[in-house]
Structures are given as structure tokens and as C-alpha cells.
């Protein structure tokens, strides 16, 4: 049975006089692996910031876990990896342990934490400085941190930007595993070819939102051309 994690009716956002999001209406059922895609400046990050409660100046209705977003108190059910997170921490004298312990929803379930670190191939990194890790390793540390509180949904904004292609594939495989464990995912990505293998829901955003219930539906529509201006990516979908 599907439960709705996020729902919106006529969600709009303006920056000054410019409309960034125009009357979005959607339900995000659990469990889902959704790719949020669209050209640069389409409003993807803005939508994510509104869902995560960072941006509050929107109009329309938005509910998160059945509660109006303005009243939703995140107790760890919703995890978020902002864009370029793995670059912002480089100047800090922080170890992997410091990063993991910075999760304010930290659980005392050490067994769960050890399982996460094992699954993400970073089991012995606790005392390493975050600045000493590769880009891909740093991103996995941040992902591990986001999993500590056993979230029901993780929202990732272009998490593999700057990561080499092998690590990108590995990262998406990890996301797929998390999805198979029942954790819903919203992934902002342009990497349609790679994420097509994992996602079962596609949101195309360019001020307005077009929802596709499956990758097959998306690939057979004209939206790729309408949104990006060309059918420039050949998509394959495998389950």
C-alpha cells in the first residue's frame, strides 16, 4: 500500500517578479525513487528547498508526512544532501566521526551505523580528516551521515557532481540498495542515462511540473525534447 510522503496543490514560488515554480500539484508516494530533472534554472533546487523547509515564502499547499510543511518538525524522517556539500567542508578540521556525530538526530544504534559504514565502503575511516578523502569518499560519508537517523526519505541535489564516473555508478547502486530497503529517494540529476537504471518515477520541471509514472513513460513522451530541446540522451531502463 502506498503512503504519501509529500503532497502539493498549486505550489508556486516567485523570486521578485519572476515565477520560478508555477502551480505545481503532485503526490510523492512511498516507496518511490524519483528523479527530478530539468534544465538549469528550472527551479529544481528551489523545489527541494521548499520541501525541506529551507524556503518558506511559497504559495499553495504543501504537506510533508501528512502535516502542513510550515508545521512539520523534522525528527530525522527526512534527510537532505544539498548541492556541493562535499566541497564545503574541506577547510574544516573535521574527521569522519565529527561529520557523523554532527547529525542532530543521531541514534545510539551503533550496529546500524556500522552496517551503513560497511555498506558504503568506509568502515575504517572514522579518524580520517574529511579533507583527506577523495570526492567520492566524502560524498559517501555525507550519505552515511544522512542515514544515521533511519530516514524514510532522502533528498539529494546533484550528489555526484565532481565525482568520477566509476564512483558515480557505485553511488547510484548504493541508492538503489537503499530504495530496496524501503527508503524513498528524490534525486535531482541531469544524469538521465545513469539514473534511468534505478528510478521508477520521473519529475520533469521547467517552471511547471510534468510527472511520469515510469521511465518508460518518460522515454516515450516528447518531454525530453520539450524540456531540453533535443532527444539527446538515449535512455535504457533496467529493473
Amino acid at each position: 500500500m502506498n503512503n504519501t510522503i509529500i503532497s502539493a496543490i498549486d505550489l508556486s514560488f516567485k523570486y521578485g517578479e519572476e515565477t520560478i515554480l508555477d502551480s505545481l500539484t503532485f503526490n510523492f508516494p512511498s516507496p518511490s525513487f524519483c528523479v527530478l530533472t530539468g534544465p538549469n534554472g528550472a527551479g529544481k533546487t528551489t523545489l527541494i528547498r521548499i520541501i525541506t523547509g529551507i524556503e518558506k515564502n511559497y504559495t499553495g499547499t504543501l504537506n510533508v508526512f501528512g502535516v502542513p510543511a510550515a508545521k512539520f518538525i523534522n525528527k530525522g524522517e527526512l534527510a537532505y544532501l544539498p548541492q556541493r556539500l562535499n566541497q564545503t567542508s574541506l577547510n574544516l578540521p573535521t574527521t569522519v566521526d565529527d561529520i557523523l556525530n554532527s547529525n542532530l538526530f543521531k541514534t545510539v544504534d551503533q550496529e546500524w551505523i556500522d552496517r551503513i559504514l560497511e555498506k558504503l565502503h568506509i568502515p575504517d575511516f572514522n579518524n580520517k580528516l574529511i579533507s583527506q578523502l577523495s570526492v567520492g569518499q566524502r560524498q559517501r560519508v555525507w550519505l552515511a551521515r544522512s542515514l544515521i537517523a533511519k530516514p524514510k526519505i532522502i533528498i539529494l541535489d546533484e550528489p555526484v557532481s565532481g565525482v568520477d564516473s566509476i564512483n558515480q555508478v557505485e553511488f547510484y547502486e548504493i541508492l538503489n540498495e537503499l530504495f530496496s530497503l524501503g527508503i524513498s529517494i528524490i534525486l535531482v540529476s541531469h544524469e538521465l542515462e545513469v539514473v534511468a537504471k534505478s528510478a521508477n518515477l520521473v519529475w520533469c520541471l521547467n517552471r511547471k511540473l510534468i510527472i511520469h509514472k515510469s521511465i518508460e513513460e518518460f522515454t516515450h513522451s516528447s518531454d525530453l525534447h520539450d524540456i531540453y530541446g533535443s532527444n539527446h540522451v538515449h535512455l535504457e531502463h533496467q529493473h
Binding site: T52, T88, D98, L104
Partner: peptide, 19 residues
Amino acid sequence: RRELLLISLDEELASAEGL
């Protein structure tokens, strides 16, 4: 101290986690 560290790491992340 934990809130300050989290904000120092990333303000957006801190905001999303309810700070």
C-alpha cells in the same frame, strides 16, 4: 556546540534539519 558545528559545516543542511 553541535548546532554551531553543523551550521559551520553547511547552513542549508542545518536549516533542513530544523535548526
